[in-house]
Design a protein around this nucleic acid. Structure first.
Length: 482
RNA sequence: GCUCCCAUCGUCUAGUCUGGUCUAGGACACCGCCUUUUCACGGCGGUAACAGGGGUUCGAAUCCCCUUGGGAGUACCA
């Protein structure tokens, strides 16, 4: 039987970093086993689910490069793939469970429920202890009350026995009989509840593996009960570790940038994000750390999942971005970096060939394209860029810089070049100047290079002049002498 | 409270299943040196961990138990 794995987010917000990682694992397992990856939208919470979130989520999943075989926008044989479109099925099965004695209507009002929970709390027993008030209520009587229009929910009748299952990452897990009470499967507004539709769909959509985060581990006991009552085969479960923030708590909004769209907006490389996320809870058999996810499918398996929670660290993500940035070439590099450079930046006025040459050189210095701006200063500034630490050092340089002979020499050379119709100095030009100043003007060593740097770039430090000067327009260089 | 899960450098992790090759390896970050007449890159090196206690064993990071710590769940959210 072919492996089928689903990612089932609820559209109540933007795709979360943790969600993206789960989706990645689902994608990878499906791919590794030559199976299908399915996207299902769990929108049964009418208040919080929004269609625009669904759209955004799908966009983000695509941006991550996690293409699925079936989903709301990719019809398959077991659709629809949006739970709000499967209501009839859930209702039918919920009532089937009622008729078979696995579930029952319950008429407890929310006020009554609150009181009962309160009571259980003061008695220091499980809060769900009194939720089963209607479990033995006469069904015919119940149906009469429903027909009269009375509000009700459907509760699942807990069979009160232990449940054990083998989790693919955690091993054998056992839940005691009283872990949960008679829980709701159909709300009073007619909407089914997560644990119920999840099982129905995983069954009807023929899922073989349920891969999700550890926060769902405890839900598994409820789901196991439902599979059993439905007479459905249980899939394999794999609960992967949680992603946590600095405080070791589940990663959430208050930890800062935790949605994929924020990284997209900040122009991170999706392959870098995926690479980093992949390693947060899984390890490469050869301890390789920089890779594209599609390169590791054949070695991806559940055995290398880590059970303990992983801390999400942006510093390390930045490193991964830098590594992937350096893997980019020519056109890729240009179209990627260009987006991060302010639209009014002089960079955009340059020739394409120049841009690529500049980026190929500067890419070694940054992790993110947004850091490029400060490095470009050396190419475009017209005012001296000096920080306090430079001042001391500058005293010498300034005395040199103001030496009229050398100033006028460089200026003269630049003017000659300009008149010959050249737009940029060549590397050879730069060497000639250096040699001339060395031989004829008797300046060498540190004063030579520091001095030339200060004169030509108005900065005391920066990248290799041999590279930088040929990237700077002669016109601009001349203005630096005025 | 109750239930479940987890526990190796600050962080991500290798090693745990199949005890010895682990005076615990790699990566991020940090620090130093080399290289570069600057900066960065790169290279080399450094600081830094088996939570604690009991067992089992000739031998335990690895197996068992307890303690402690952390997390998750305990909803008519998912």
């Amino acid at each position: 039987m072919s492996v089928r794995v689903r990612f089932a987010p609820s559209p109540t917000g933007y795709l979360h970093i943790g969600g993206a990682r789960t989706a990645l694992y689902c994608y990878l397992i499906a791919k590794a086993k030559g199976g299908q990856f399915v996207l299902r939208i769990e929108d049964t919470d009418q208040e919080r689910s929004k269609p625009e979130y669904e759209t955004a989520m799908i966009d983000d999943i695509h941006w991550c490069g996690l293409d699925y075989h079936e989903g709301p926008d990719k019809p398959g044989d077991v659709g629809p793939y949006r739970q709000s479109e499967r209501m009839e099925l859930y209702k039918e099965l919920a009532w089937k469970l009622v008729d078979e004695g696995h579930a029952y209507p319950c008429f407890l009002s929310s006020e009554q429920l609150e009181e009962l929970t309160e009571k259980a709390n003061t008695e220091k027993i499980a809060p769900h202890a009194y939720h089963g008030q209607f479990r033995d209520y006469d069904l015919a009587e119940a149906k009469k009350r429903i027909d009269k229009g009375e509000e009700f929910v459907i509760r699942f009748k807990n069979p009160n026995k232990k449940y054990t299952f083998k989790d693919l990452v955690r091993g054998e897990v056992t839940f005691p009989e009283d872990m949960v009470g008679d829980f709701v499967i159909l709300r009073s507004n007619g909407m089914p509840v997560y644990n119920f539709c999840c099982v129905v769909d995983d069954w009807k959509m023929k899922m073989t593996h349920v891969i999700r985060a550890e926060e769902h581990l405890n839900n598994t006991v409820r789901q196991l009960m439902i599979y059993e009552a439905l007479g459905a085969p249980t899939p394999e479960f794999a609960h992967c570790s949680l992603l946590v923030g600095e405080d070791r708590q589940k990663l959430s909004k208050r930890h800062g940038a935790t949605s994929v769209s924020q990284y997209r907006d900040q122009n991170y490389l999706p392959q870098a994000l995926m690479n980093y996320l992949c390693l947060l809870g899984w390890s490469h058999p050869e301890e390789k750390d920089i890779f594209k996810v599609d390169e590791i499918v054949e070695m991806f398996d559940l055995n290398r999942f880590i059970k303990s929670p992983a801390l999400y660290d942006i510093a390390k993500l930045n490193f991964f971005n830098g590594q992937h940035l350096r893997l980019l070439t020519g056109d890729e590099l240009l179209s990627y970096c260009e987006r991060s450079i302010p639209t009014d930046h002089s960079f955009h006025g340059q020739e394409k060939e120049w841009k690529i040459r500049a980026l190929e050189f500067f890419k070694e210095k940054v992790n993110l394209p947004s850091e490029l701006d400060e490095h470009f200063e050396v190419l475009f500034n017209t005012e001296p860029r000096l920080n306090e630490a430079d001042t001391e050092e500058l005293k010498d340089i300034l005395s040199w810089e103001t030496t009229p002979v050398i100033q006028s020499y460089l200026k003269e050379e630049l003017t000659k070049l300009k008149e010959s119709g050249v737009e940029y100095p060549s590397e050879e030009n730069f060497s000639e100047w250096t040699n001339h100043i060395k031989k004829e003007l008797k300046v060498k060593g540190k004063p030579l290079f520091k001095g030339m740097r200060a004169a030509l770039t108005k900065m005391t430090q920066g990248p290799d002049l041999k590279i930088v000067i040929p990237l700077t327009k002669i016109d601009l260089l001349i203005t630096r002498f005025q």
